[in-house]
Computed example of a mutant assay.
Amino acid sequence: MSGRIHLVGAGPGDADLLTVRAARLIAAADVIVHDRLVGPDVLAGCRPGTELVDVSKRPGKASVAQEEINRILISRARSGLDVVRLKGGDPFVFGRGGEEAIALAAAGIEFELVPGISSALAGPAAAGIPVTHREAARSFAVMTAHAAGLDGHDWSALAAVDTLVVLMGAATAGLVTRRLLQAGRAADTPAAAVQEATLAGQREVRSTLAALPDAIAADGLRAPLVLVIGAVAALDVRCAVASEVAR
């Protein structure tokens, strides 16, 4: 007897931004294996008796190894249970969804992928920042600022993109800024940081690229943080005041 795994994106945080499919699967699951960025409002959609397994990876604390997460998923499925693997944002955008899908396929476990709204798009949008905008941004890129992977980036290419969205950048904003400046990005490039996008604790700062780390520190912003770098970061489409970049 074998159950089924659903690799589900929980979106950027606000439970109202779950897809209809995600909400239905959460409500029907026997087991939900979830990450730190999946909040209580999202988990409140499960039925009584659902097993909730927290496999959060928290900065500065011991993490659940990916191999152990894979083992949990496979063992629950082989017990005949319906399992939702719930990830913040989208499973395939820095969520290791690809690794888990490969592990499940290798184990012969049936699975379904349910995309979610990535914070790479929802974070800027929640702050009124379009990642593309006519005459200002015809391209955008998304990068992770996790310290372990910073040396693997092509900084010259990232510095040339119209809009750069940086995920997991709370701890390394200063290093990201220095690398982009060294790669040729202008110091006065508009920049913004959005904390807890779409949630009640959402806060924002706007600055220039060179001043962004100091602005984040001065306002006491903390993870989860989305950084936006490029001309569009000067925009706030929620306001009636037009900026130069919008004209």
Score class of each variant (00 low, 15 high):
I216Y: 07
A62R: 15
R138A: 13
A193N: 06
A22F: 04
A234N: 02
R247K: 12
S2M: 13
L221H: 02
R76P: 01
P48Q: 07
L113A: 13
V53S: 08
C239K: 14
G88Y: 10
E99L: 07
I117T: 06
A62W: 00
L175R: 13
G123S: 12
V8C: 09
L180R: 06
I32C: 13
Q202P: 12
D214P: 06
I216A: 11
R36T: 01
V8H: 00
P48E: 09
G3M: 06
V166K: 06
W155S: 06
R138P: 00
V245K: 08
T172F: 09
V42P: 04
V166I: 15
A127P: 10
V20K: 02
A234K: 07
S2F: 10
A223Q: 05
A126P: 05
T163R: 00
G13K: 03
L225F: 06
R238Q: 08
S79W: 00
C46T: 13
A210M: 06
V33Y: 03
H153K: 13
R178V: 03
A240R: 14
H133S: 03
I69W: 10
Q182K: 12
P130V: 02
M1K: 11
R96K: 08
P224T: 11
A218R: 10
Q182E: 15
G80W: 05
V176Q: 01
L37H: 12
A125K: 05
L175G: 02
A137W: 11
A106F: 04
R58V: 08
R47M: 06
A106K: 15
T172S: 14
E196F: 14
F92C: 05
D35I: 06
A62Y: 05
A27H: 01
G149T: 13
R78V: 00
V228T: 14
A107W: 09
L221F: 03
R178P: 01
D30R: 08
T19W: 03
L7P: 05
A197T: 05
R247P: 00
D82L: 10
H34W: 08
D54H: 07
A147W: 10
R4Y: 01
A234M: 10
G201I: 00
E204F: 00
G89N: 02
V131M: 13
V226L: 01
A193Y: 02
R222Y: 00
T177Y: 13
G174F: 10
R78I: 00
S63T: 11
V114H: 12
A145F: 00
G80C: 05
A215P: 09
G184L: 10
L227H: 07
I216P: 09
S56A: 15
R47H: 15
V194A: 07
L43F: 09
G9E: 10
C46G: 11
P224F: 09
A105P: 07
T172G: 13
A147G: 03
V161I: 14
T189D: 03
G169H: 07
V165G: 09
G201C: 06
E51T: 13
I229V: 15
R21Q: 03
S139H: 01
Q202I: 08
L37D: 11
I229C: 10
E110I: 03
S75D: 15
L181H: 04
S207Q: 11
